[in-house]
Computed example of a mutant assay.
Amino acid sequence: MAVGLWTLVKKSDYISLLSSRIYAVSAYILCLAGVIVMVTGVLGCCATFKEKRRLLRVYFVLLMCIFLLEILAGVLAYIYYQQLSDELKSNLKNTMVEKYKQPEQDHVTQAVDKLQQEFKCCGSHNSSDWMESVWVRTGESSKRVVPDSCCKTPMELCGERDHPSNIYKVEGGCIAKLENFIMNHLKLIGAVGVGVACVQIVGMIFTCCLYRSLKAEPY
């Protein structure tokens, strides 16, 4: 649950730069599984202390649901891990040049600025990508050739000068940086999902053993 919330709260800016929702869905699944885990934990304690077979049956079903959710999160993370590179190459540049500083696209603008500052990069592939930007071509940039977030020392209108001494010139651009970041995070989501799922298997085995050891309840 913590990993899912961390992804959605701290890394949500980058989700808006992705065309696929699998990254966000994986995080939501972890959050949902976390909520069910808390409910299941309370139910499991009650079932064990009161030695109620009916409660144990419900507990087992909930463990099974958690197991399936965690496996699903892990599988989705693995699938998206395989698709991520192609998606970024196909969509990141278009998102940046078409939506940056455009009406009702503030979330994209903030995500791009954060991306370029946090990863010290400029443009999708390189800084020249910004020459194709709607923001630059329509003159909305106030003579800037790149956003101010490309600057090594960000300040108003610093994006007027496209020079390595002033802006970040990173080989591979922001695509390489973002791809590496998300891939590492997908590994974490997948590991947490599969890891917790394995724990649920142990829980289900112990539940079955306890269930069989209890006497049947009178109806």
Rank of each mutant, 00 (worst) to 15 (best):
D106P: 02
M64Y: 03
Q110P: 05
F60C: 11
F119E: 13
Y81D: 13
K120R: 13
I36A: 07
Q116P: 04
Q110R: 14
L62Q: 06
A77P: 01
M64W: 02
F119T: 12
L115D: 05
F67C: 13
L72W: 07
G34F: 03
N94E: 12
V58I: 11
L76M: 15
N94T: 12
K89Y: 12
T48F: 13
K114L: 13
K114E: 11
C31M: 15
K99G: 00
Y100L: 06
L62I: 02
K93M: 10
K120I: 04
L68D: 08
V61T: 14
E70Q: 15
M38R: 05
I71P: 05
P103N: 07
S90R: 13
C46W: 01
M64F: 13
S90F: 08
T109C: 08
N126K: 09
V35S: 12
T48V: 10
K50Y: 07
I66K: 07
I79T: 04
S127Y: 02
Q102D: 02
F67H: 11
Y80N: 09
G74E: 03
K50E: 10
T109K: 01
T109E: 06
V39L: 15
T40A: 11
C65D: 04
V112M: 10
K120S: 10
Q117A: 05
L63G: 03
C122K: 04
I71R: 00
F60E: 01
H107R: 09
R57H: 14
L43M: 13
H125I: 05
G34D: 09
V39I: 14
Y78I: 12
L115G: 03
Q110T: 11
G123D: 03
H125V: 08
Q102E: 14
S124K: 00
T48C: 06
G123W: 01
M64R: 05
K52V: 04
S90A: 15
K52T: 08
A33E: 08
L76F: 07
L68F: 15
Q117D: 02
K120E: 13
V97Q: 04
Q117S: 11
K93I: 05
L43D: 06
M96K: 01
A33T: 01
P103F: 09
C31R: 04
K50D: 11
M96N: 05
N91F: 12
S124E: 03
C121W: 05
H107A: 10
I71H: 07
L72M: 14
S85T: 15
Q102G: 04
Y80C: 07
P103Y: 09
G74F: 07
L84C: 02
Y100Q: 03
K89S: 13
Y100G: 03
M96E: 03
Y80K: 10
L84E: 01
L76I: 08
N94H: 12
S124V: 06
Y80L: 04
A111F: 01
L62E: 00
A77E: 05
Y78K: 11
A47C: 08
E51G: 08
C46Y: 05
V112R: 03
R54M: 10
Q110N: 13
K93Y: 11
K114P: 05
E104K: 14
S85M: 09
Q117T: 12
G44I: 00
Y80H: 14
M96V: 07
M96L: 13
F60M: 14
S85E: 14
L92P: 00
G44L: 03
Y80T: 04
M64A: 15
